[in-house]
Design a binder for these strands. Structure first.
Lengths: 115, 115
DNA sequence: GTCAAAGTTCGATGCGTGTCATACTTCGAC
DNA sequence: GTCGAAGTATGACACGCATCGAACTTTGAC
């Protein structure tokens, strides 16, 4: 049988149930500074952002990789608008599964001395 | 000139000022499950523990490596009692520099479903 | 239709780091 | 003194992962 067409909204990738995600996986996702920057920008923006509107110091293919890791870790939700892939922070869900984690990591100075 | 003797309490390694430690370094220390287990046991025990009293699924030399990483990240303080190296969680200091971080990571089920 | 924009997929590569075994050091007990 | 206990230091190794370029796909604009 032919492979599924995967066109239109069929391109939307699957999203895991956060309750099945382990702390280990979430931490591995958040330890990378590029990915933490993505989460930080989504958190600060307070709205969904297209991949291209978040400027990252890596190539496009690497950026795709990072968004993939964040989605697999249950931290973001992705959907298409035209050719743009939008990213939504799964804030409430993550906060329920791992209370206090995002707040402890996002929107802070890197060191206490920077405060 | 001769190398310093490094005997007695001179064996005590230097400890960094937590205010100079970056979130990146702390996260890299805490992303390893063995190291998170060490922190978790120290947190649960509520008292200083010798390296040997924390049973870890790795060799002694690997354990030494992990304690070293935790110390360099400002998360534990180490001192000698006889031949035993004691480990103290730098709880208040870490909590002041990175509020909520330890509580979000320690003493929790791995997934929300385990709760 | 054509074309460009926005991402994705696929390999390949290089560096980091967690792991171990071995040899060594320091201390306490005897 | 000798011996064992508790860690440390060093060197080697293997695996993972972040990175990139190039080719490809899908969509919207014209």
């Amino acid at each position: 049988m032919a492979a599924p067409r995967r066109t239109g909204q069929g391109r939307i990738p699957p999203h895991p149930d956060i309750r099945t995600i382990g702390l280990q996986q979430v931490l591995e996702a958040l330890v990378d500074p590029v990915r933490r920057r993505i989460i930080g920008e989504l958190y600060a923006a307070g709205e969904d952002l297209a991949c291209g509107t978040i400027d990252l110091p890596v190539s496009k293919s690497t950026a795709t990789h990072h968004f993939h890791v964040l989605r697999e870790a249950g931290l973001i939700r992705q959907y298409y608008v035209g050719t743009s892939r939008m990213n939504a922070l799964r804030l409430e869900e993550v906060d329920e599964a791992f209370p206090g984690l995002l707040r402890a990591l996002v929107g802070r100075p890197d060191t206490a001395r920077d405060a």
